[in-house]
């Protein structure tokens, strides 16, 4: 029961982060949902292993990232149809600000997905608020390598966003 409650709490607090990480690696909504489930299943199984040596956010982001890479590898060798447009579910009409913010987020997400994996990894984690040191530990890199990748990624993002 404690594990169930912990999982519910984590999902409430960090679920959006996990969803964003999944979305940054998979555009197809159906496959994205599979990836999200894969990530959540891995989180569920890994919860008892959490020892508190890193923050819970770092722990969860690491799991999400590793599952996403595995997902990309499985998809890499399969024939793909043309990339679908994102379909963010939208019920009621949103206020103008909400639509604009969501549209900006969609554009940013699409731009991030165009980045090569080596650049996408540190960018996604930076956008989630992780420090270069935390990112370096998660990716098994030096802080300097992370900085170099972020610098290159910034240029690519700028080109992709057209600004």
């Amino acid at each position: 029961m404690a594990r169930e409650e912990a999982f519910q709490t984590l999902l409430g607090e960090h679920g959006p982060m996990l969803a964003r990480i999944a979305a940054s690696y998979e555009a197809d909504p159906a496959k994205r949902q599979e990836l999200q489930q894969d990530i959540l299943a891995a989180v569920w199984r890994s919860l008892p292993s959490f020892r508190g040596d890193a923050s819970i956010r770092t722990f969860l982001a690491r799991i999400a990232h590793n599952r996403a890479i595995s997902h990309v590898a499985r998809a890499a060798a399969e024939p793909r149809m043309a990339e679908l447009d994102e379909a963010i579910p939208c019920g009621q009409p949103s206020p103008f600000d909400e639509i604009e913010r969501n549209d900006q987020q969609r554009r940013l997400m699409a731009a991030v997905r165009t980045l090569p994996l080596s650049a996408r990894e540190p960018v996604v984690l930076t956008l989630e608020g992780f420090t270069p040191r935390e990112i370096a530990a998660m990716l098994g890199l030096t802080a300097n390598s992370v900085s170099i990748r972020l610098t290159r990624a910034k240029e690519m993002l700028r080109a992709a966003l057209g600004s």
Binding site: A42, R45, S46, R62, H65, I69, E121, A137, M138
Partner: peptide
């Protein structure tokens, strides 16, 4: 499960 917890 170990792969999920390792670094990249």
């Amino acid at each position: 499960d170990r792969a999920s917890l390792a670094n990249a």
